[in-house]
Every structure is written in C-alpha cells, then in structure tokens.
C-alpha cells in the first residue's frame, strides 16, 4: 500500500539549512560551556588550560570524523580505539628498529589503510555485519599488539617525534593543527565531492545507489579505509604525546568517537551526518571532562555526565528532526 503523503504542506525543512542550524546550536552549546566554566573557575581561561583542552579534544575529533564516514554508510567501526593502541605499538617498534621517521610514519598509516581494507573485505565479500567484523579486529589487534610488545611497552627515543605533540605553531598546539589538517580535506570529500554524495546514497539505500551506477563496494571500502587511517593517524599522535607504544592504550576511545559523532548530529541509521558536527561533539566532550577536572568533580561522575549528555542531545536532535517533518 503506497503511503499517501502530502507534498508541500508538510515538507521537511531543507536539509542543508538544518545541518548549518544544528552546527550553530552545537557551537552555541560549546561557547556556553566555555563561558560558564570561565565564570565558575579562574583556571579555565588560562593559556595552559586552553591548549590542554585543544590537545585533549584533538584526538577524539579526528577519530570521530573517520567514524562519521562509516556511520553515514549505516555501518559502525568499533575497532578505532584498538587501532590507535596497535599503531602506537607499530610506530614505536619501527622507530626502535631504526627505521627512519618518515618511513615509520608512512608505514604506520599504511597499516591503518590495510586494516580498513580488511574490514571492508569482511563486510563486502564475506557478508559480515560491520559490528561483528570490527568487534573482532578490536580484540585481535589488542592481542597482536600485546604479542609484539610481549605485554609491556616500547619507549620512543626519537626526540623529533615526541617533541611534535608538545610543539605549538602560531600559539596553537600542533595537535590541534592536525585536526584542521584532517578536517579540511574531510569536508571537501564529504560535502563537496561526489564520493561524499555516494556515502550518503549507500547509507540511505544501497540497492538504489547500486542501480544508479554507484560503485557500492568501493564506497564501503573507502569509508572503512578512511576510518582506520584516521585511527592510525591518531595512533601516531598518541605515541608522540605519551612517548611510548602500548597496545592497551586508547581503551574505549571508539565509544568516545561514536558519541562525538552522534552528538554532532550523525544518525546511526545512516545517511545523516557532517564533518563539523563530530568536531564540535568531540570538543564538547573534551570541555566537559576538562571542566569537571577543574571543578574537582569525581572522575566517575564525569562518565555519568557524559552518558546523560548523549541522551539529552540526541533526544533534542530527534525532537527537532521530527518537528521539521
């Protein structure tokens, strides 16, 4: 039975307008948080704390952008936290083996690409649900990393590498610059190129996309490769920041990334999402953690607050969407 929907009278608000509006609301929330924290504690608006906040948020933000590509195709990548830990081990291991820095970085990123290829292969060729294949890599990669390090950590002695995360450029932490380095091409890719459109189409209706000539398999490969590569990149940043390679690092970061993405307006059902949304989402989460630390809120409470916040934001987002239909 065809649904007799009425056009015109109840038409939804134009999509792009909504996403800009939502972006502004999130930006408003972020600024409100900053203002409130500035009033509540003197320690917030100090250069030291701000650059600390930017560093904290940067890594989640990059993971969230990669995650968003996957979620838009109506998939999920649970492995990103494990990939971060694993690639921190890889780069530390390569540097310890005397591999030149540039080669170690390129090789680590390539490993990220390969992990993405493996995920997409499992989904496209073996027909596994994304949840399952990435859950499997989550646990396996931690295992492989622990095998390589024999359960311990590998220290990184390359100073050029470890100094990078502490450096500033134009007074802004280099880690935050990396967000910009990722976000600009990501924006061009998702919102301005045809491949971005294909991600949305595949997430909305895979069969319709296929019959319209979209190479669905390649699109899925692309999404998972981008997600894993972003994770490998974050692995490099993390290794640089803490100066070691350790397979158990970044525990639970996949959930942080998914939460940032969802707070940023991405729909877990696919076909809805942006690049700026998850970035704001990641910094909102970072601000809450940062503020809670400054206000001496028990870190257990931080987790509870984060959970409540996800419910509230996504609930209001859905209300708004329904209201606009």
């Amino acid at each position: 039975m065809s649904v007799e929907t009425v056009e015109g009278s109840a038409a939804p608000t134009p999509k792009r307008g909504v996403s800009i509006l939502f972006g502004l609301t999130l930006l408003g929330l972020l600024l409100a948080l900053w203002l409130a924290l500035g009033l509540a504690t003197n320690a917030f608006w100090t250069p030291n704390n701000i650059s600390n906040l930017l560093r904290q948020g940067a890594m989640t933000a990059i993971l969230a952008v990669g995650q968003t590509f996957v979620i838009i195709t109506a998939g999920i990548d649970l492995s990103v936290g494990a990939v971060v830990g694993f690639t921190s081990v890889i780069v530390a291991w390569l540097l310890a083996a005397g591999v030149p820095l540039w080669l170690a970085v390129v090789a680590t990123l390539l490993i990220g690409v390969l992990i993405g290829v493996f995920h997409a292969f499992g989904i496209v060729r073996m027909g596994l649900p994304p949840f399952i294949i990435t859950l499997a890599t989550l646990t396996s990669l931690r295992g492989i990393g622990l095998l390589i390090t024999n359960g311990s950590t590998i220290s990184i002695t390359n100073e050029a590498f470890t100094n990078f995360s502490r450096a500033d450029f134009l007074g802004i932490p280099s880690l935050f610059w990396m967000v910009i380095v990722v976000a600009i091409p990501a924006y061009v890719f998702l919102h301005l190129s045809r491949f971005g459109r294909y991600l949305f189409a595949v997430g909305s209706n895979r069969e319709a996309a296929r019959l319209s000539g979209v190479n669905v398999d390649r699109t899925i490969y692309l999404a998972y490769i981008l997600s894993s590569t972003c994770a490998a990149f974050v692995g490099l940043l993390l290794a640089s920041r803490i100066g070691i390679g350790n397979a158990t690092q970044a525990e639970g970061w996949e959930l942080q990334a998914i939460a940032s993405s969802v707070i940023g307006g991405t729909s877990l059902f696919g076909a809805v999402g942006s690049v700026h949304g998850p970035l704001l989402g990641a910094f909102i989460l970072a601000t809450i953690n940062n503020g809670a630390n400054l206000l001496n809120v028990n870190s257990f409470w931080q987790r509870i607050i984060t959970g409540l916040l996800i419910i509230v934001i996504v609930y209001f987002d859905q209300l708004r969407r329904r209201g606009s239909r």
């Binding site: 065809s2 929907t5 056009e7 015109g8 109840a10 038409a11 939804p12 999509k15």
Partner: peptide, 13 residues
Amino acid sequence: TPSRRVLASAMSG
C-alpha cells in the same frame, strides 16, 4: 515540490 532539498520520502507515489 517547493524545493530540490525536500526529502524524497515526503513525496507522493
């Protein structure tokens, strides 16, 4: 349709 930005689901058969 009022606009190309309206979702396809809002249209009649």
